[in-house]
């Protein structure tokens, strides 16, 4: 499961034909110093905690993961078999780099890592995620998060 230029024809055709959302406007907040950024990670890897219920294959909702928790109970519950799982098996940071973000916070490169990070089921149609995203944005504002890093699987 290498990068797109190396993937087999059937997968490449699928990815090339995948419909992508079109946005009328692309918003851009003015640049701000990195050391003023409180950063949350948002993954589309369908992550779950070992002790929680499974993420349904068509779930439009998101799960929260504490910044301070370890990776011991972090699992990938995504329905797709077409992305690498060996990297995550060896080091969860490969997919969900909480440790690296904590490092950037400890080194004062960023203002802080958010207290919570998040994951969606990337296989779900993004149009169905509108309500969940609205709730998540409110949560981010409440926690004074001013920067998010979107991570694919």
């Amino acid at each position: 499961m290498p990068k797109l230029s190396d993937v087999v024809a059937s997968q490449r055709e699928h990815l090339e034909a995948l419909e992508c959302p079109v946005f009328e406007h692309t918003a851009l907040v003015p640049p701000r110093p990195l050391n003023e950024c409180k950063v949350a990670l948002i993954s589309s890897a369908g992550l779950m905690s070992r002790h929680d219920d499974n993420v349904p294959g068509n779930s439009a909702d998101y799960r929260s993961f504490a910044n301070a928790s370890t990776d011991r109970d972090l699992l990938v519950n995504h329905v797709s078999v077409n992305f690498d799982r060996t990297g995550f098996a060896e080091d969860a940071n490969t997919l969900f780099p909480r440790e690296r973000l904590r490092q950037l916070s400890d080194d004062d490169v960023i203002s802080a890592a958010a207290t919570e990070h998040y994951s969606f089921m990337g296989a779900t149609n993004p149009d169905n995620m509108r309500d969940a995203v609205t709730r998540l944005v409110a949560q981010l504002k409440e926690n004074r998060v001013n920067t998010v890093c979107l991570l694919p699987a």
Partner: peptide
């Protein structure tokens, strides 16, 4: 490759470089 958005496992230097370069865009 898909499934490795910040690079290689157990390579904290590379992972940090990717994350820092991405965040620097802000």
């Amino acid at each position: 490759e898909f499934g490795r958005p910040v690079g290689a496992p157990d390579d904290s230097d590379l992972q940090l470089e990717v994350l820092t370069q991405a965040l620097n865009l802000i």
